[in-house]
């Protein structure tokens, strides 16, 4: 990813089983802020110390929308582990968030 991205490093653990998530937003709209909160909460709960969230503001660099093929915000893209998963919306539906991201840390069951 280019240097234009706003990256919020939540943890600084080594890669390996490190999840790599990218959240596309436009500015600080209520939907986007909600999405950030929802994503962080879910990650803290299920992936504490094993995740990395990159927040990309498409208003700052609109051309990234074409490059990354993002038309709707907020959109979360799970870049690692593969396969790539894409979730659209403010992530207020927690069940769909967990199912969509396949957020199941080793040895635990879903909420």
């Amino acid at each position: 990813m280019s240097e234009l991205h706003t990256a919020d490093d939540e943890t600084s653990a080594d890669s390996g089983d490190q999840w790599n998530l990218c959240l596309y937003v436009t500015d600080r709209s209520p939907k986007c802020l909600r999405a950030i909160d929802n994503l962080r909460r879910a990650c803290e709960e299920h992936l504490a110390g094993h995740y990395h969230i990159e927040v990309v503001d498409l208003l700052e660099n609109p051309r990234l929308a074409a490059e990354d093929q993002i038309l709707a915000v907020p959109t979360v893209v799970r870049k690692f582990p593969s396969p790539i998963r894409k979730l659209v919306g403010d992530l207020s539906d927690n069940d769909r968030l967990l199912v969509g991201l396949q957020l199941r840390p080793p040895g635990s069951t879903a909420t």
Binding site: Y24, T26, S29, K31, R34, A35, N38, L58, L59, P62, R63, A65, A66, I70, L71, A72, V73, P74, T75, R85, K86, L87, V88, G89, D90, L91, S92, D93, R96, L97, V99, G100
Partner: peptide, 16 residues
Amino acid sequence: DFVATGEFDLQPLFAI
């Protein structure tokens, strides 16, 4: 490709 998980808009389309 996409899983809908709540409200969204097409602001990126407008922006681009």
